[in-house]
């Protein structure tokens, strides 16, 4: 297992954002985490990347307690695409993507040729070459999101955590970035854990869905097995019809009410 969580609790003051949550995530799969606003999805990602420490319970990463890893070691294993990317300083796109190589480069060393190749490859993969000389604060939300994604690709880690990676993207770029993430799963055996709002995109790309409610796992499993009208009714309080869509080989949802 890549991640193993046992009875994890995380509270903001008196409010338990994560409430005795247990979860196992296997390597080489694309997981989508789905749930209503405020159900603890982002907190769960924060716990997985070590940004927050659980108040109770334990988190294991690749067989060892997550807390045992140093930040440097972890940054070579887990990359995060956060939701927030307010940048107040005039870094260029290339400079920001290059920062994805910091964990692999000694503190005072100049970037190696591998580093430079990885950065260019990441820029190219995310369609951000044309942006590479532009200043981050000038970009639109979607452009910034692509840049931050490119940085995570340049970081070149076996685990990729995405916090609503498509929130600001048009449909073309959303499909493109999720294709990239899915490629890393199939070609490199990477593990992707993505918090997603768009259930149809999640159903299309994820091998397994994890439904969350009030800080707990409501349901989880292979997409075709777990995604049905009853789950959506119980979690989101909406009526929906779920049908297999042969054109993409995945179930898709139509919301009725």
């Amino acid at each position: 297992m890549v991640f193993e969580l046992e009875h994890v609790v995380y509270a903001y003051g008196a409010h338990r954002a994560i409430d005795r949550l247990s979860l196992s995530l296997a390597p080489g799969k694309f997981y989508a985490i789905i749930g209503p606003n405020g159900c603890g999805k982002t907190t769960l990602l924060d716990l997985l990347c070590g940004h927050r420490q659980p108040g109770a319970g334990s988190i294991f990463f690749a067989g060892r307690s997550l807390a045992e890893y140093g930040k440097k070691a972890l940054s070579r294993k887990i990359a995060l695409v956060p939701q927030e990317y307010r940048v107040n300083f005039p870094y260029t796109v290339r400079e920001v993507v290059s920062m994805g190589r910091y964990p692999h480069t000694p503190r005072f060393a100049a970037p190696s040729s591998t580093d430079r190749d990885r950065v260019e490859a990441a820029l190219a993969a995310c369609g951000a070459q044309d942006l590479s000389g532009r200043y981050l604060p000038e970009l639109s939300g979607g452009e910034k999101q692509r840049v931050v994604f490119a940085r995570a690709i340049a970081q070149d880690t076996p685990v990729l955590l995405l916090d609503e990676p498509c929130a600001n993207l048009d449909v073309k770029h959303a499909l493109h970035l999720l294709d990239l993430a899915a490629d890393r799963v199939t070609m490199n055996g990477a593990t992707v854990v993505a918090v997603m709002h768009d259930i149809n995109l999640a159903a299309r790309y994820a091998d397994e869905l994890v439904f969350m409610q009030s800080g707990k796992i409501y349901a989880g499993g292979p997409t075709e097995e777990v995604l049905d009208a009853a789950v959506l009714r119980n979690i989101f309080d909406v009526d929906a019809r779920v049908a297999y869509e042969p054109a993409i080989g995945a179930p898709q949802v139509v919301f009725l009410k």
Binding site: H51, K71, R76, P82, E84, V87, Y91, Y102, P103, L161
Partner: peptide, 16 residues
């Protein structure tokens, strides 16, 4: 450089 991009970013790129 990483800190100036925010705590989550710096954290996930290996800064304490």
């Amino acid at each position: 450089n990483l800190i100036s991009l925010g705590t989550r970013t710096a954290d996930s790129l290996g800064v304490e």
